[in-house]
């Protein structure tokens, strides 16, 4: 029973940050109607900024996270407004966000390597305590990760459903033409939404940095997992990403319990295949 509970708790914890990652990608799709294959690289950038602020500048953990996320938010907005928005209209790029974001991703990886070097960087755990009770083991770091992740999820839901700005984002996602007629500056919405989406990836990057370490290529596996969450939850659906993220975390956790660590990724991606077969639009996606 404790093994089951331990797996479940571990699964929910990892699920929470999978959800945060997935939302960023799904919002990019839903609002800007584009795939961002550099999503994982913004996760990486967030981790590096956190490292810079906490290790090099010596700021405490919380301000470092805030600065890291803010930094990525600004970089994201700049890239969207400066490069992506212009490039998508040009014939030369073939209107392909895939190519443009691929280029941005490579650029970010190389820039990271130049600035911070290819060595792995580490940051200390926010808290070294390990709790043990009733046969369950829980590291304080993991709980903090889950707490921040869930808080972020709630904040995003509130932003989208309750704020005027969140409405504007939904409207732009559903009908850009109409949104413009309502007085919504959709170019600005695109810019800010992209910034927000990659900032979410940065949140995950900051809180996971102590556990997984930092290197310029760490975005790769994160990109894949984000896609899985996005597709299973339904492209464009925030609620779907949350459910799918937690589902992925739990499935991964239990599958490693019973099948061993080697099968972890196989089972996760099988989930995608099953979803494509049974319900291609994802859990909360719309049928087209």
């Amino acid at each position: 029973m404790t093994v089951f509970l331990q797996s479940l708790i571990n699964g929910i914890i990892s699920g929470s940050y999978y959800a945060v990652l997935g939302i960023g990608l799904t919002v990019t799709w839903g609002v800007l109607k584009m795939i961002n294959v550099a999503h994982g690289d913004f996760y990486m950038l967030g981790a590096y900024l956190f490292y810079t602020f906490s290790r090099i500048a010596g700021l405490p953990v919380v301000p470092s996270i805030i600065m890291g996320v803010l930094g990525v938010f600004l970089v994201g907005m700049l890239l969207q407004r400066g490069i992506i928005a212009h490039a998508l209209g040009r014939e030369a790029f073939g209107n392909s966000p895939f190519i443009i974001t691929l280029a941005i991703g490579i650029m970010l990886e190389n820039i990271a390597q130049i600035i911070w070097g290819e060595n792995n960087r580490g940051v200390p755990y926010f808290n070294e305590t390990v709790f043990e009770f009733g046969g369950l083991t829980m590291a304080a770091q993991r709980l903090i990760v889950a707490a921040i992740a869930f808080a972020t999820l709630i904040a995003v839901m509130i932003l989208i459903k309750k704020t005027r700005f969140g409405w504007a984002i939904s409207a732009t996602a559903q009908d850009r033409f109409s949104a413009t007629l309502m007085g919504i500056n959709t170019n600005r919405i695109y810019m800010v939404t992209f910034g927000l989406a990659v900032a979410l990836a940065a949140v995950a990057g900051c809180i996971l940095a102590p556990i997984y370490g930092i290197n310029p290529w760490m975005g790769g596996s994160v990109q894949l997992k984000s896609f899985v969450v996005c597709i299973v939850g339904g492209l464009g659906s925030v609620g779907g990403s949350i459910v799918a993220g937690i589902l992925l975390g739990i499935v991964e956790s239990f599958s490693t319990q019973f099948f061993g660590s080697g099968w972890q990724n196989v089972i996760a991606y099988s989930l995608v295949l099953v979803m494509f077969w049974v319900r291609p639009e994802g859990i909360f996606g719309k049928k087209h």
């Binding site: 939904s170 409207a171 559903q174 009908d175 033409f177 109409s178 949104a179 007629l181």
Partner: peptide, 14 residues
């Protein structure tokens, strides 16, 4: 100035 566009263009999920 407001416009009701061809095909109405309401926000379907709102």
């Amino acid at each position: 100035i407001t416009l009701t566009p061809e095909g109405r263009h309401l926000f379907p999920e709102l």
